[in-house]
Design a protein around this nucleic acid. Structure first.
Lengths: 201, 201
DNA sequence: AAAAGAGTTGACTGGTCAGTTAAGTCATGC
DNA sequence: GCATGACTTAACTGACCAGTCAACTCTTTT
C-alpha cells in the first residue's frame, strides 16, 4: 500500500493542474484519475464529489503558496520592494506555467471561480474568500507605503481593491490572448496607479 | 413553417443567454434546444457544432450592441461625458441581467473566453477580437480627452489597455462575488485613473 | 402541378459523465 | 492469528453528451 495520503495528494495536485490548465467543465473525474494513476473508487473514497476535490485543491494550493507570500510581503521589506518582488514572482509563475503547458493559464481562482460562480456555490464562495485573503497582503503593503509617504494614494483598502481588479483583468486577458506580453507592464502600471514616487509613467 | 431565420435567431439568443448565465461547459445543446423550443436536428441544420453557435452568437450580440455604443461614444459628445454614460450603461446592463437571472453575470466574452481559451481556438480568437473592438471606443475617447486637456494621462493606447483590464477585472469580481457593489465605484475609479480634472478621489 | 430545396422532426448512435458497489488487499492493534 | 478499518480494484449504473440520419412538411420555382 502507498504512503498515507500519497494518493489523495496526487489527486489534489493533478486535479488542480488539469483544471487550471483547462476548465472545470472540460476535465472529468476520469481524466483526473487516469492522469493520477488512481482508480475511480479511490477518488470517491477521498472526495464526496468533484466539487469537493476542487475546494480542497484550492485550499491546498493556497497553503502551499502562503510561505512564499509571507516572505515576499514581510514587514522587514520596504513596501515598494514587496510590490516589486511580488510582480516578478507573478510573472515568473505565469511564464513557467505557460512553458509547461503551452499556453498562458492566468489566475486559477478567477478562471474557475468565474466559470462556475453562478451554479456551484461551494466553489464560488471559496474563490471569493481566497482572492480576498490574497488582497490583504497588498492592502498592508500599501498602508505601509502611505505611512512612509512613498506613494500618493490615500486609502489602502480602496487602492488594494482597485489593484486587485486591475491584476485580475490583466491575468484574464493574458489567458484569453494567450500572450505573456499583457503582463510585461504590470509593475509599471501598478506603481503608476499607486503614484509611486520613484517611477515615471 | 416559421418565418425565415426565426428558429436560427431564437437559438442564437437562447444559446447566448444560457451560456452567459451559466458557462459553456455546463450548457448542453439539448438545453439550448429545449429552451428554444427547437428540435436537435434543426440546431445542426443551422450550426455545424456547438462551438460555431457560440461564435455566431458572439457576432450577433456584438452587432446588436454596436448602435448603442456608437451613440454613446459619438464624437458629438464630450469625451468625459462619453465615459460617464458608458459607465452608467454598463452598470444598468449588469443590474438588469442580475435581476433577470438572480445573479451577477459579468462580461460574456471574458467569462466564456477565459473558460475555453486553452482548448477552443475558434472561440478564444473571437473573444480576443471582440474585446479589442470594444477597447477602440475607449481609446478614441481618451485621445479626445487628452487633446482637450480634460485628463492627465499621456498615452491613449496604453491608458485604454489598462482601463480595459481594470474593467474586466471588476466584472469578473462582481460575478464571482455575485455583488453589484463591486461595480458602484467604477466611474470614480476610472476618472481617477485617467486623472480627470473635474473629479476628486 | 411537379420538382427542388429549405427547414423540421424525433429517434438513434456510441461514447462519456458523475457517482456506486461489492469484493478484495493490506497494515495495525489486540 | 485474527479482527478491524483504511484503502484499492474494476466492473457497473443510468443519465446525458455531441452529433447523425432518413423521412417528413412546407414554400418557392419552373
Amino acid at each position: 500500500m502507498k504512503k498515507t495520503n500519497e494518493t489523495k495528494e496526487k489527486l489534489l495536485q493533478v486535479g488542480f493542474d488539469l483544471i487550471w490548465d483547462n476548465s472545470y467543465g472540460s476535465v472529468s473525474v476520469d481524466d483526473i484519475c487516469k492522469r493520477a494513476g488512481v482508480n475511480k473508487g479511490s477518488f470517491y473514497h477521498f472526495f464526496p464529489s468533484k466539487t469537493d476535490l476542487v475546494v480542497e485543491a484550492y485550499e491546498e494550493h493556497w497553503k502551499e503558496k502562503r510561505p512564499t507570500l509571507d516572505r515576499i510581503f514581510s514587514s522587514q521589506v520596504p513596501p515598494l520592494e514587496r510590490i516589486h518582488v511580488w510582480c516578478q514572482y507573478m510573472y515568473e509563475t505565469q511564464k513557467e506555467k505557460a512553458e509547461q503547458y503551452g499556453h498562458v493559464c492566468g489566475c486559477p481562482f478567477a478562471s474557475v471561480g468565474s466559470e462556475i460562480a453562478t451554479f456551484d456555490e461551494k466553489i464560488r464562495a471559496r474563490s471569493e474568500q481566497l482572492m480576498n485573503s490574497g488582497r490583504k497582503y497588498v492592502e498592508t503593503a500599501i498602508a505601509d507605503a502611505i505611512r512612509e509617504r512613498s506613494v500618493t494614494v490615500k486609502d489602502p483598502v480602496a487602492a488594494s481593491l482597485t489593484l486587485q481588479s486591475l491584476l485580475l483583468g490583466m491575468l484574464v486577458e493574458a489567458r484569453i490572448q494567450n500572450d505573456l506580453k499583457v503582463l510585461e507592464n504590470m509593475e509599471a502600471t501598478i506603481l503608476d496607479f499607486l503614484g509611486a514616487k520613484t517611477v515615471g509613467v
